[in-house]
Each structure stands twice: as structure tokens, then as C-alpha cells.
Nucleic acid binder design. Structure first.
Length: 483
RNA sequence: GGGCCCGUAGCUCAGCUCGGUAGAGCAUCUGGCUUUUAACCAGGUGGCCGGGGGUUCGAAUCCCCUCGGGCCCGCCA
């Protein structure tokens, strides 16, 4: 493959600069203002002398006068270059400063005849010589593959993409502040685990050479965070990556970010309240509004969020969990093309519910009180031992959060783990492993507690109106490229 | 895992139905121009048409294989 022409042209310029004793990658240039500050409060800066730095995004020459766009942090200011000010340096700029270079400039904040806020450049320095021209600014970078493989170009050229990731960063920071203000402590639990647990998923397997054992990349943080409750911390959380070796689509990436929160002496009602308050707080802080539009869907986060009991909803839809036979359920599974490695009534009902109703919950909806078999880590419902005190939150038809009143009975926990092991033997690859160390911890005694996991990527999608999880993940997983 | 679509210049795309010397706009390069902002005017450079194989006198175009990507479905958060 021949080298790009822009690359070769710019290499020549670098050689010329060096031969003149000019370092194309100098160490330091003192800035005293940012482009953002000037653009946001032009009156404060008008007529003043400033030193700023940024990337050259456009150049427009008109003989002995020229204009450029200098950009940083998604803010842009015009450079105003005049021969009568710069003299010989004007020609130097014209010859050696290219689009995409990062430069520092010193000059006065002015407005041009057309009223454009500008820096009348008096001095300038090349800070980073770029060897590639940027993709065309007007058409932007639309090739999806290039956008994901070279995300920095995507962010540099597509302002909305830049803002999505700025918001994502703000969301994570705001979550930490919110929980900190309520007295929660953040912990970092193991990512490499000898036994994985806390969710139903296929794991990534790795190997720890030092002890010659296969380990797993965690699929959730749950069982380690609960050990912290045993240890005596009443309010804990963790924000981190989980890894699930499953398929990729607009809502799933094999590595994704989750926050899990556990609080002693609380139950799932408290955790729903916490979740609702947190997400409303985020929407207000990030977007200044509790309304979000995603595609055709207008989502309203205000008001008290709806709670729907899973079995009651099924019953309303004509599937009465009290009277329906297993054979009838199996027929429905077939009708909706749902495959189960081993038939378990409660799981079958949950899957039917998910298939029929999940996508219909556009405004935030808590689905509560799941069949007992849907998860082995949840406490039985206080009024019905066939149910567990579990909730899932849906917004825009996708699952955003999952929480429960945590199971802290070590005897029951061991029994439920054993049931999972049986299901695994029957071929369910996503059945959970039995974590005997965790049972040991429960025998010491874990306070009654509520817990919730919230998908950070998913909530970022909601708050940035992103239609695909790839739009909120910096580098979504892609196959390596070769010919 | 199944179905549909896409890959041509640095970027955005046409050309493919119906095979005949690889195109446009922008970017880049060279001139010109002292208030532009998709600047403008004139001229030039730039491509193994994702990769491999086949059919053919001749393939970007037809056929087969393969790589990468997108969307939908299944499973999953």
C-alpha cells in the first residue's frame, strides 16, 4: 500500500522545519485562556491579549489576509491572520501550518467586519505537527467502521459524538457525587475470579500463570460486594467493567460498565426509590430536563414511576400463572420461539413476560415480584414463597436496572446454588456456579440488605438519546481488520 | 447461529442492471486575491475498485470463496 500523499508532503515539511532549527514537537507553550472560556464570555475578553492553543480545523486565505478555525474541547474560535501584522511570519504560517496541526497563538480578541469573534494573531508556534489531513469537515466522518476503529477522529469531527462522551463522563462523575453525599463507599472487587457469579451469563476464561489455574473475567460484582456487607460496611458500591461472552448487538457489548449498589437494612422498595431518585437526578444534572426523545419515543422521567407486578401483568394478558398448565406454557414458548435448555416453570413465565412485554415499557417502569426460580440470589417474597423480591427497571423498552432484597439465608442460598448446578448439568450454559466461599461468608452473617445493578452504558444511551450501545462505548469491540 | 445490505481517491459518493482505457465534489499541490467562515478563480497530482480464484479476447461490473462492517431476528444486561 503506497503512503498517503498528505503524509509524504508533511514529512517533507517536518524536514524543512528541522533544517531551520524549528522543533515540530516542542515541549511547552504557556496558555492563559481556553477557547471555551473566550467563546462563552466574549465580552470579558474583548480587546484583551490572550495565549491559547488548539487544533487547526480550517484555513481560508485571501492574499494578504487569512482566516482559520482553531478548535479544542468542541469549542472553536476564528484565527485572523494579517500580513501587515505578521510580516514574514505570515508566509511561514501559510507554508508550514496545515489543517489538523495543533498550534499555540498569542494575539488580541477582536471581532471581524462580519462580526466573527476572532484572535488577531501576533505570534504563533507549532505545538504538534500532524502528519495526516483530517477527513473532510463538511461531510464529516460517516463511515461507521472508521468511526469505531478510530474513535478520536469521530470525536474530533462529529460534535454530537464528542458531546455524548462528555455526557457519559459527567454521568459517572455525578453518580459518584450522588452516592458519596449519601455516605456510600466505593470499592474495587476482583475482576479475575476463580468462580464467577451474580448473573446468568457465559464468561470469558483466562489463565493465571503464577498459580496455574483458569480464572474467569467477572460477569458481575455482586458476590464480592455482598462480602463487604458481611465485613460491616453498610453502604457500598462499585462502578466497573463486567464481561459476558455473548453476542453483540445494538444493546450488548461483551465488556460493559455496571454500577452495583448494596445497602444494609434496606429492601427492594428502598432500592427502587434510590434508583428512581438517582436517574432523575442524573437527567436533571446532565440534560436539565426529565424529558428525553429517542427516535420516535418521547420519554418522561418525571412523576412517580409505574410498578407492574410480573404475574399480574401476565394474567391481564390472558396467561394466568395460577391456572395455566406446563404443557400450555411450553406451547407458548414454542409460539414465541423461546428455547430453554431445561424447562423450569418460573423461568419460562419470566421469559414469556420478557418476550411479550419488555419492549412495551417506554416510560420508566419497574417490573416487580419475579417467580422464585428467576434468580438464586434473591430473598423470597415476604407474602408469597413462590416469588422473590426482585425488580427490573425498563426505559425505552430496554432493561436498565435489576435489583432485589438480597438473600442472606446461607442454608437457602446453598440450596438455590445446588439447583443451578443441576440446571447446568441439564445443559444450561448460563446457570450459575456454586460459590462455596460466598456461602461461608453468609454463614458468618450478612445483614439484611437491598441491592441494585444499573447498566451505565444503558443509562448513558437513555440520557444521550443514543440508539446503539456502540454510540456510548468509546471503543466497541470489533474484529481485527486484515485483508 | 439465521436473513438482508454494504466495501471504488484522504473524505462523501456515482459507475455495476446491460463487461470495452476508472469518474464527480470537496481536501491536497501550484498560481492569483487585504474581512472569510463549505471563501472564490485558474491549473495540476492522486485509485491493484476490501482480498483470492474463476468465466471471458477483455472484469469495479458476471460467478465462487474469503475478510471487514451495518441492520433485523435468536440468546443475553
Amino acid at each position: 500500500m503506497p503512503e498517503r500523499k498528505d503524509f509524504l508532503d508533511r514529512l517533507k515539511k517536518i524536514d524543512e522545519l528541522k533544517s531551520m532549527g524549528i522543533n515540530p514537537y516542542p515541549h511547552y507553550f504557556k496558555v492563559n485562556s481556553t477557547i471555551r472560556e473566550i467563546v462563552e464570555s466574549p465580552d470579558l475578553f474583548m480587546g484583551k491579549n490572550v495565549s491559547i492553543a488548539g487544533r487547526v480545523m480550517a484555513l481560508r486565505y485571501h492574499g494578504k489576509v487569512g482566516f482559520g478555525d482553531l478548535s479544542m474541547d468542541n469549542f472553536k474560535i476564528q484565527l485572523f491572520l494579517k500580513y501587515e501584522v505578521l510580516k514574514d511570519n505570515y508566509d511561514f504560517f501559510k507554508k508550514f501550518v496545515d489543517k489538523s496541526d495543533i498550534i499555540g497563538v498569542e494575539g488580541d480578541v477582536v471581532r471581524t467586519e462580519k462580526g466573527e469573534l476572532s484572535i488577531l494573531v501576533k505570534n504563533f508556534i507549532i505545538l504538534t505537527k500532524s502528519l495526516y489531513d483530517l477527513p473532510h469537515a463538511w461531510f464529516g466522518l460517516e463511515d461507521v467502521e472508521t468511526r469505531y476503529r478510530q474513535r478520536y477522529l469521530d470525536m474530533l469531527l462529529n460534535k454530537d459524538v464528542f458531546e455524548i462522551f462528555r455526557k457519559r463522563s459527567m454521568i459517572v462523575g455525578e453518580i459518584r457525587r450522588f452516592l458519596d453525599s449519601k455516605g456510600f463507599l466505593e470499592f474495587e472487587t476482583p475482576i479475575l475470579q476463580p468462580v464467577y457469579g451474580g448473573a446468568n451469563a457465559k464468561p470469558f476464561i483466562t489463565h493465571v500463570n503464577a498459580i496455574d489455574r483458569n480464572y474467569y473475567l467477572r460477569i458481575s460484582d455482586e458476590l464480592y460486594l455482598k462480602r463487604l456487607l458481611v465485613a460491616g460496611y453498610p453502604k457500598v458500591f462499585e462502578i466497573g467493567k463486567d464481561f459476558r461472552n455473548e453476542d453483540i448487538d445494538s444493546r450488548h457489548n461483551p465488556e460493559f460498565t455496571m454500577i452495583e449498589i448494596y445497602e444494609a437494612f434496606k429492601d427492594y422498595n428502598d432500592m427502587m426509590e434510590l434508583t428512581e431518585n438517582l436517574i432523575k437526578h442524573l437527567a436533571q444534572k446532565i440534560n436539565g430536563s426529565l424529558k428525553v426523545k429517542i427516535g420516535e419515543n418521547e420519554i418522561d422521567l418525571s412523576g412517580e414511576w409505574k410498578k407492574v407486578k410480573l404475574l399480574e401483568k401476565l394474567k391481564e394478558g390472558g396467561v394466568d400463572p395460577n391456572t395455566i398448565t406446563d404443557d400450555e406454557i411450553k406451547k407458548l414458548l414454542e409460539k414465541y420461539d423461546i428455547k430453554m435448555p431445561s424447562y423450569v416453570r418460573g423461568i419460562a413465565l419470566t421469559k414469556l413476560f420478557e418476550e411479550i412485554y419488555e419492549h412495551t415499557f417506554i416510560n420508566p417502569t419497574f417490573v416487580i415480584d419475579y417467580p422464585r426460580e428467576s434468580t438464586p440470589l434473591c430473598k423470597l417474597h415476604r407474602n408469597d414463597p413462590n416469588l422473590v423480591e426482585r425488580f427490573e427497571l425498563f426505559i425505552n423498552g430496554i432493561e436498565i436496572a435489576n435489583g432485589y432484597t438480597e438473600l442472606n439465608d446461607p442454608i437457602l442460598q446453598e440450596k438455590f446454588f445446588n439447583e443451578e448446578v443441576e440446571r447446568r448439568i441439564l445443559g444450561d450454559e448460563e446457570a450459575q456456579q456454586k460459590d462455596t466461599d460466598f456461602i461461608e461468608a453468609l454463614r458468618v452473617g450478612m445483614p439484611n440488605a437491598g441491592g441494585v445493578g444499573i447498566g451505565i452504558d444503558r443509562i448513558s444511551m437513555i440520557l444521550t438519546s443514543a440508539k446503539s450501545i456502540k454510540e456510548v462505548i468509546y471503543y466497541p469491540i470489533l474484529a481485527p481488520k486484515n485483508d
